[in-house]
């Protein structure tokens, strides 16, 4: 079975702290997991998530701070709204809403982050490849 392509979109603050700490502690992450760091999950829009699936991601996990911890204000709430809408679009498209999930983290939850990523990896592996994948070789948009 070919490894699944997972994309994580992480806020620079709490979730990235966990990711960094997990790396320093030498904790093993799923293969083919790639992380995109953004300053705040409020920066992410529906287009960025959809584009990951357009280009062949099998699963996308959005890693956010807790609502009350946002350094900028409404970041995680913007994230919840966008994830909810893209999940519906993914269901309509037949890609499946379960391929997009969001999780919130406190800055000291490195073990929890690693556990969540492995769990997500296993769930996506069970689902198989993204049915829109055939076009992934397309020129980047």
């Amino acid at each position: 079975m070919s490894p699944v392509n997972l994309l994580g979109i992480a806020c620079n603050w709490s979730p990235y702290c966990c990711y960094n700490a997990a790396g320093q502690a030498g904790l093993e992450l799923p293969p083919s997991f790639r992380l995109m760091r953004v300053m705040c999950i409020g920066r992410i829009n529906q287009a960025l998530i959809l584009r990951a699936f357009e280009h062949g991601a099998d699963g996308v996990i959005v890693l956010e701070c807790e609502d009350a911890d946002c350094r900028y204000g409404p970041g995680p709430e913007v994230g919840h709204n966008n994830v909810a809408r893209v999940r519906k679009l993914l269901r309509f498209l037949g890609i499946g809403q379960e391929r997009l999930v969001e999780k919130t983290f406190l800055a000291d939850q490195k073990e929890e982050l690693v556990r969540v990523l492995w769990d997500f990896h296993r769930r996506i592996e069970a689902l198989g490849p993204n049915p829109a994948k055939a076009r992934q070789e397309r020129v980047a948009s």
């Binding site: 829009n45 287009a47 959809l50 584009r51 699936f53 357009e54 498209l93 076009r135 397309r138 948009s141």
Partner: peptide, 9 residues
């Protein structure tokens, strides 16, 4: 480009 993305999907 979100709409163009779902059209390409």
């Amino acid at each position: 480009g979100a709409l163009h993305s779902w059209m390409r999907i």
